[in-house]
Simulated assay, not measured.
Amino acid sequence: MGTVTTPAASAGPEAGSPVFSVDGLWKVFGPKAGRVPGDPGLAALDPAALRARTGCTVAVRDVSFDVRKGEVFVVMGLSGSGKSTLVRCLTRLIEPTAGSIAIDGEDVRAMDRARLRELRRHRAAMVFQHFGLLPHRTVLDNVAYGLEIQGMGRSQRRAKAAEVVAKVGLEGMEQRRPAQLSGGQ
């Protein structure tokens, strides 16, 4: 499961406008993947038929959503359903095949490497359930880690991390280690 949490008070769009805006997003793996989203006949095929006909696999199929300032947006689904691929596409850790992604109104798909690096460091990051957690750090320090990398002072980053921990329902568990949490936590 991935979670997109938007800052409650940040520079950017006016209240009510999306921080993340995703429209018609596709990620297709395989030869000539780009033709699948644009061909209604191919796009309508079930996974087995598409794989047999084209050698392609669709990981993200025509996804659209908006996430507004202060909102917590959760991506849920079965194992292998494309959650991680979708979240990786948001910051182009994986290149989308088709569709648009905007963060604070800026076209993510048009960003160069330097701008993407800045986006990933300061505006959008992801933490996966198990693989992104540092086992020797507490919940609070894991959440604050990105702010530490940015150079934010200890007391300020811990205060910001505590707000996020409370927002996602983990208040009271700040001093636990990842191994002391359930998978859903």
Score class of each variant (00 low, 15 high):
V127I: 15
V28W: 13
V60C: 10
G146V: 11
P13E: 15
G151F: 09
I103F: 10
R115K: 00
L140G: 06
P40R: 08
A8V: 13
V22S: 03
A48H: 06
V108F: 03
D39E: 03
V108D: 05
A48S: 13
E118T: 11
T3L: 08
G153R: 12
S100K: 05
T54M: 06
E106D: 08
E163F: 09
A15K: 14
G183Q: 12
A49M: 02
A110K: 15
L93I: 13
H122Q: 13
M1L: 14
T6K: 05
V60Q: 12
K167S: 11
G34E: 15
D66L: 04
A52S: 14
A8W: 10
V164K: 02
R53C: 05
P135K: 06
R115P: 02
L133G: 07
P178W: 05
G184T: 00
R61N: 15
G55C: 10
L147D: 01
V60S: 10
G169N: 15
T5C: 14
R113Y: 04
G77W: 04
A114I: 09
M111R: 13
F131R: 13
Q180K: 01
V19A: 05
M1F: 13
M111C: 03
A124N: 01
H122V: 12
R109Q: 13
E163A: 10
V165C: 09
S17A: 14
P178C: 01
L50V: 04
R115C: 00
Q156L: 15
V67G: 02
F20S: 02
R35S: 14
G2I: 13
P135Q: 07
A59F: 09
L147H: 04
K27N: 05
R158W: 05
S100Q: 11
S21L: 08
L170D: 08
A33N: 10
I103R: 00
S21H: 14
R137S: 02
R53E: 15
G34W: 07
L133M: 10
P7N: 07
A161F: 12
R51F: 06
V143S: 08
T6M: 11
A144T: 00
A166G: 09
L119S: 09
A179W: 07
A98W: 12
A52D: 14
L42W: 11
P40Q: 08
A11M: 12
G30T: 05
E148L: 03
L116E: 09
L42Y: 07
E148S: 03
S10R: 14
A8I: 11
A166W: 02
V74N: 06
E118C: 06
G55S: 07
R53M: 05
Q175H: 10
D66A: 04
A114H: 12
Q129D: 01
T6C: 14
R120H: 11
P31G: 09
M111F: 15
A159N: 01
H130A: 02
L93N: 03
M126L: 13
V60D: 07
C89K: 03
A44F: 01
G24P: 00
E174T: 00
T57S: 15
A48D: 15
V168A: 01
R158P: 00
S79C: 05
G99Y: 12
P7K: 08
G151N: 06
M111V: 08
Q180T: 04
A114E: 15
A102G: 03
T5D: 03
V127R: 04
R88F: 06
S100M: 06
K83V: 01
G132L: 08
G16E: 08
D141P: 00
E14K: 11
G169P: 10
G2F: 14
R51T: 01
H136S: 13
